[in-house]
């Protein structure tokens, strides 16, 4: 993650009033995680399971904090049970930041399933989300928190906002290059796209 992207996310979290952060270390977020851990403006709780992280954040919110959970696409699956039984059932707000592993351009085969699971599960759990492709993160995190505070209605109570913070354009390009070489083994979803389709998506990234 580029330094200015890390800075953008941190500033976004601060402007949004987030003062409590839980996380389990993840490679695509490690710089951000270090930065958050070193910042005295955030209460910082590293956990060994993202499921514990959801519980910790839920408690922090009940105690008056504004929590955020930095969770990878894999950890999002680990967290499904507490996101359901705590956040969904009780209507507890929680901001999730998810680096989107498994998207087109990610050449590690084990990440493939997350393209299939992440967005469908966010929908199933009624967690609204927005995709962040560059360092516009500041405004989007802020805007979403406003939405979260307003969103006290029915299932909108959840108002759990999630972001996929994309890897940098440089890393994406690199990943796509590998993906083109290995497109038959990357994942079912990338198999679905013809090579030229991946190429034509590049400018959008």
């Amino acid at each position: 993650m580029r330094a200015e992207a890390v800075e953008a996310v941190v500033q976004g979290l601060k402007q949004a009033g987030v003062d409590f952060i839980s996380l389990l270390p993840d490679s695509d977020f490690s710089e951000l995680q270090r930065r958050v851990g070193d910042d005295r403006g955030f209460a910082y709780v590293p956990v060994s399971s993202e499921a514990i992280g959801v519980g910790v954040c839920a408690g922090a919110w009940l105690g008056g904090k504004k929590p955020a959970l930095l969770v990878p696409t894999s950890g999002f699956l680990v967290a499904v049970w507490p996101l359901t039984s705590l956040c969904m059932a009780w209507g507890l707000p929680l901001l999730l930041l998810i680096p989107y592993r498994g998207d087109i351009g990610d050449a590690f085969w084990l990440m493939g399933p997350y393209k299939d699971t992440t967005e469908p599960l966010l929908s199933v759990l009624h967690i609204p989300y927005v995709v962040v492709l560059n360092n516009l993160a500041v405004g989007w995190i802020e805007g979403n928190t406003v939405f979260r505070e307003r969103g006290r209605r029915g299932h909108g109570d959840l108002a759990t906002a999630a972001f996929r913070v994309q890897k940098t354009i440089e890393r994406q390009s690199k990943g796509v290059a590998r993906c083109l070489q290995e497109s038959t083994i990357v994942s079912p979803s990338s198999n679905f796209f013809k090579k030229r389709d991946i190429t034509t998506r590049l400018p959008d990234l």
Binding site: P25, D26, S30, E31, R34, P46, S48
Partner: peptide
Amino acid sequence: QCYLATGGLPTA
């Protein structure tokens, strides 16, 4: 004592 492959932050 750390998550080595993902950046090296400490474990419990």
